[in-house]
């Protein structure tokens, strides 16, 4: 029996008067890759931002329902939001290295947490870049600006940056949408390796990507969770007509 890491109960999300998530119920298992697919504006990204409460930052946004992590609701008022966000590493669609060196990008979050021991940071940088599959390409130029890297390298740097924080969960919001096939492949390889130690939620509008890497796949449409099942089942015999239509490319 798989262990539940995150349990989402009756989650509703509103943006001003518009309801962007409708009564979502979903479980995420530990050390799996859960892909979320669906057409644009179906609430996939919004769902991710609810998990680490980045949604708090958007004026006019409101959340109802519960998200339980290790049995605790993260929307309780006494929750330390900053500590919560450290448990979640998040990678965005556009790679956004901070305007500083490669090395500083990787240790940014760790420094914020107050760690400054040089040899320890050095080890952490190597380890994180290694896991993200970037170490060999940048080991000789850690001091150059991260903005000089290619798009694919920047995205793997963003992955390394969150790995340095030793999160429990990794949230990826269309991480390869702007990348070429080879860079995409490298990211997917990293994800497969990372699954051993992390719980990964991957939002993608590339259904083939979900088929390639995900253990389970959830299909979102217009703010609703249409269905969630083993990836193989979703792609071969979905229970809902709309899932089938989407996967056959009839809309979206």
């Amino acid at each position: 029996m798989k262990e539940t890491a995150i349990e989402v109960r009756n989650l509703n999300h509103f943006y001003n008067r518009h309801q962007s998530l409708k009564n979502i119920n979903l479980e995420v298992y530990r050390h799996e890759i859960l892909a979320i697919i669906g057409p644009a504006k179906s609430g996939k990204s919004t769902f991710l931002t609810c998990l680490n409460r980045m949604s708090d930052l958007i004026p006019g946004a409101r959340v109802e329902g519960q998200i339980l992590i290790d049995g605790q609701d993260i929307y309780r008022p006494e929750v330390d939001v900053v500590a919560l966000r450290r448990k979640f590493g998040m990678v965005f669609a556009t790679p956004i290295p901070l305007p500083m060196s490669i090395y500083e990008n990787v240790v940014y979050g760790v420094r914020l947490a107050g760690k400054n021991n040089r040899p320890e940071l050095d080890r952490l940088v190597e380890d994180s870049l290694e896991k993200a599959g970037l170490w060999n390409e940048v080991k000789d130029r850690l001091r150059i600006s991260a903005l000089k890297l290619s798009g694919g390298q920047q995205q793997r740097l963003c992955l390394a940056r969150i790995l340095a924080l030793k999160p429990e969960y990794i949230l990826l919001d269309e991480p390869t949408s702007g990348l070429d096939p080879i860079s995409t492949m490298k990211i997917e390889d990293s994800l497969r390796r990372l699954k051993q130690n992390y719980t990964i939620i991957l939002v993608t509008n590339n259904t083939k990507q979900a088929a390639r890497v995900a253990d389970r796949t959830a299909f979102f449409l217009m703010g609703e969770l249409v269905e969630v099942a083993e990836t193989e089942i979703i792609f071969t015999r979905p229970t809902d007509k709309r899932t089938e239509a989407y996967l056959e490319g009839k809309f979206g």
Binding site: N52, M54, L57, V82, A83, R85, R86, F88, G89, M90, F92, T94, I96, P97, L98, P99, Y108, G109, L112, A113, C158, R161, I162, L165
Partner: peptide
Amino acid sequence: DCYREGSIALGAT
């Protein structure tokens, strides 16, 4: 804004 979001997602205040 993406710089701010990136930083906050990394657990910065």
